[in-house]
Structures are given as C-alpha cells and as structure tokens.
C-alpha cells in the first residue's frame, strides 16, 4: 500500500467497523486485514486507546469454556465517528481536487 494509515484514520476505520456490529479482536483484525495493509498486532493499541477515551466499551462473553472480549461502540464513539466521517469526506474531496488536476481547470 503506497499511502499510509495514520492513527486517526485507523481510529476512524475501527469505529466504522464496530458501529455495524460488536466484534472481538481476532475477527476485527482479520476483517481489516482483508482491506488494508496492517499487521496482526496493529489493532490492540488502537482498541485500547479508543477504550480509554470512552469511544468503545468492552464486555466478555463465554465461548467454548473461555472468554471472548467484545468491543461495542459508545454514544461518545458514535459522535466521534460522525466527526471522522465529515472530516474524511472533506479531506477526500480536497485530495481528489489536487490529484485529479482540477485545480488548473
């Protein structure tokens, strides 16, 4: 991947995925790895950070005699995600404008 995923973009991506449904670490990582170039250890610090900021919440669910920690988006998280979406759309349009060469036309 030529363009890098910076921390806020990663936060936005994770929030976007978790908003759709609650996930646990492994599936979240696998799902994101199908789309973007991250490693298996990239997401733990992101999840921890979002949790500390109160954007995600965790709860445990038993699975085959052990625990699985699920992440769920909070109201605060939804607000932040809405903000990230607006920011992303604005940013994308600006970059398209430059990369597309429309600034000259």
């Amino acid at each position: 991947m030529t363009y890098q995923l910076t921390a806020p973009l990663l936060d936005a991506c994770v929030l976007g995925v978790v908003e759709k449904e609650d996930v646990y670490g492994y599936t979240l990582t696998q799902r994101m790895m199908e789309v973007v170039d991250i490693s298996e250890s990239t997401l733990y610090p992101v999840l921890r950070r979002l949790q500390k900021f109160g954007l995600l919440q965790v709860y445990d669910k038993p699975y085959q005699g052990r625990n699985r920690r699920y992440y769920r988006i909070t109201d605060e998280g939804r607000k932040q995600l809405a903000f990230f979406r607006d920011e992303w759309t604005a940013y994308k349009e600006k970059i398209d404008y430059l990369v597309g060469g429309w600034i000259n036309g």
């Binding site: 646990y24 670490g25 492994y26 599936t27 990582t29 298996e40 733990y44 999840l47 921890r48 052990r66 625990n67 699985r68 920690r69």
Partner: peptide, 13 residues
C-alpha cells in the same frame, strides 16, 4: 488487558 487480549487472540488463531 494486553495479556488477556493476546491470550485470547492466539486461541482464536
């Protein structure tokens, strides 16, 4: 928290 996460993650692999 980190140890729990990776313990579970490796199980899931």
């Amino acid at each position: 928290d980190a140890l729990d996460y990776y313990y579970e993650y490796i199980d899931d692999m």
